[in-house]
């Protein structure tokens, strides 16, 4: 089902000082695909995800979102981003969920969700509130509407964060280790919400340590190590018979 690419990253390079964290990563994500990116810590998987939504800048390579160039590199190796306003518009097609939620502590759950639609899109409060409430209902937290984030459990916080991202109506959702900061018994509720999103054919890129989620929900699993994509295959295949010895070693360690 690979029609038009939602995300196209070609030969992405990134270094922090002298340390190369991405050594030429290329990835194409089709509409409705759910990509799980797995790999040891320090493999560059989170950095790559952050590059896609411009939380990090790349030093070489090309990134296109729904056919629109975010950054490109010419033959001479000059890396060029589009102007700031364009960056914001293009990255607006994506929503992102963080490991540490990054909810706004001074705003209630509802205010967290309606803030960006109102300030960024200029929507009226009475248009946004019903939408926000529908999203809260969807993630099962309507009764927490007027609570402050500090009153929520980790799993609840993450579901609010998902609702907050969805309120901007993104075409693509990026998840950066969304369950890594949660107590084990709370990961289930977050994964369930993500699975529902996948069932609705949301295009998703998920950096995760949840092998169960990768296996059952992802259409494709990508194994990264030392700044490279080592293996990229349909989930079932990769878990059943990993081709690369490094993938095999990693999976044996995880399971």
């Amino acid at each position: 089902m690979m029609n038009e690419a939602m995300i196209r990253a070609v030969d992405v390079h990134k270094h922090f000082g002298p340390v190369e964290v991405l050594k030429g990563v290329s990835l194409e994500v089709g509409k409705g695909e759910v990509i799980a990116i797995i790999g040891p810590s320090g493999s560059g998987k989170s950095t790559f995800l952050r590059c896609l939504i411009h939380l990090e800048t790349v030093h070489r390579g090309t990134i296109e979102i729904e056919g629109e160039k975010l950054v490109s590199t010419d033959a001479a190796g000059h890396c060029q981003y589009v102007p700031d306003a364009e960056i914001r518009r293009i990255c607006g097609k994506m929503g992102m969920v963080f490991q540490h939620f990054n909810l706004f502590p001074h705003l209630t759950v509802l205010q967290n969700i309606i803030e960006a639609p109102m300030t960024v899109k200029g929507m009226r409060r009475d248009e946004v509130v019903p939408k926000a409430e529908a999203l809260l209902k969807k993630v099962g937290l309507l009764e927490k509407r007027d609570s402050y984030p500090s009153r929520l459990s980790g799993g609840q916080k993450q579901r609010v964060a998902i609702a907050r991202a969805l309120a901007m109506e993104p075409d693509i959702m990026l998840f950066d280790e969304p369950t890594s900061a949660l107590d084990p018994e709370l990961t289930g509720e977050v994964l369930r919400t993500m699975r529902e999103l996948a069932d609705e054919h949301m295009t998703m890129v998920v950096v995760t340590h949840e092998m169960g989620f990768a296996r059952e929900v992802a259409s494709r699993v990508i194994f990264m190590d030392e700044g490279n994509i080592v293996e990229s295959r349909p989930a079932r295949e990769l878990f059943a018979c990993p081709e690369h010895p490094r993938t095999r070693a990693f999976l044996e360690n995880m399971l």
Partner: peptide, 23 residues
């Protein structure tokens, strides 16, 4: 203020000025 607050606002499309004022 934690960097995550800026990032959270940024991925929602907020400008620097909006992030400062609102968040």
């Amino acid at each position: 203020i934690d960097r995550g607050q800026y990032e959270g606002a940024r991925v929602l499309g907020m400008t620097y000025a909006q992030t400062m004022r609102r968040i």
